[in-house]
Simulated scan of single mutants.
Amino acid sequence: MTSTSAHATASTETYFDTVRRLSSAQKTAARGAPPYSVYVNRRVGRYLAAGAFRLGLTPNNVTTISASFTFCAIGLLAIGEPSWWLGLVVWLLLAIGYAFDSADGQVARLRGGGSPSGEWLDHVVDSIKISTLHLAVLITMFTHFPLSSSIWLLVPIGFAAVAAVSFFAMILNDLLKAKHAPRAPLSTAPRTAVRSLLGLPTDYGVLCLAFVLLGAPLAFFGLYTLLFIANALYLALALGKWFRDMTALGRVDVVRP
Rank of each mutant, 00 (worst) to 15 (best):
T12F: 02
T12K: 08
T12S: 11
E13H: 09
E13T: 14
E13F: 06
E13W: 06
E13Y: 02
T14W: 06
T14C: 02
Y15W: 12
Y15L: 11
Y15R: 02
F16V: 03
F16G: 00
F16D: 02
D17K: 06
D17I: 08
D17F: 08
D17Y: 09
T18F: 05
T18Q: 08
T18A: 13
T18W: 08
T18V: 15
V19Y: 11
V19I: 12
V19P: 01
V19H: 01
R20F: 13
R21W: 13
L22N: 07
L22P: 01
L22F: 09
S23D: 14
S23V: 04
S24T: 13
S24G: 08
S24E: 15
A25F: 12
A25T: 14
A25Y: 08
A25V: 03
Q26R: 15
Q26I: 05
Q26Y: 06
Q26F: 11
Q26S: 07
K27W: 10
K27T: 12
K27I: 10
K27E: 14
K27G: 07
K27M: 10
T28K: 15
T28V: 15
T28F: 08
T28A: 14
A29D: 09
A29N: 05
A29K: 10
A29T: 08
A30S: 14
R31L: 05
R31C: 04
G32L: 04
G32D: 13
G32R: 11
G32F: 05
A33Y: 05
A33H: 02
A33C: 02
A33G: 01
P34I: 08
P34E: 05
P34L: 04
P34S: 07
P35E: 00
P35H: 04
P35S: 00
P35K: 02
P35Q: 01
Y36A: 03
Y36F: 13
S37L: 15
S37W: 12
S37F: 12
S37D: 12
S37I: 11
S37H: 13
V38P: 03
V38A: 06
Y39I: 00
Y39W: 14
Y39S: 00
Y39Q: 02
N41I: 07
N41Y: 15
R42S: 10
R42Y: 10
R42Q: 15
R42C: 01
R42F: 08
R43A: 07
R43V: 15
R43W: 15
R43S: 09
V44R: 06
G45I: 10
R46H: 11
R46S: 09
R46G: 07
Y47H: 08
Y47I: 03
L48C: 10
L48Q: 04
L48S: 05
L48T: 10
L48M: 13
L48P: 09
A49M: 04
A49C: 04
A49Y: 05
A50S: 13
A50G: 07
A50N: 05
A50W: 14
A50H: 09
G51C: 03
A52N: 07
A52E: 07
A52C: 15
F53R: 01
F53M: 02
R54I: 03
R54D: 07
R54W: 01
L55Y: 06
L55Q: 12
L55V: 10
L55M: 13
L55F: 12
L55H: 11
L55D: 04
G56E: 04
G56L: 03
G56V: 06
G56N: 05
G56F: 08
G56A: 01
L57V: 02
L57W: 14
L57S: 06
L57F: 13
L57N: 06
T58W: 09
P59M: 01
P59D: 03
N60G: 01
N60Y: 02
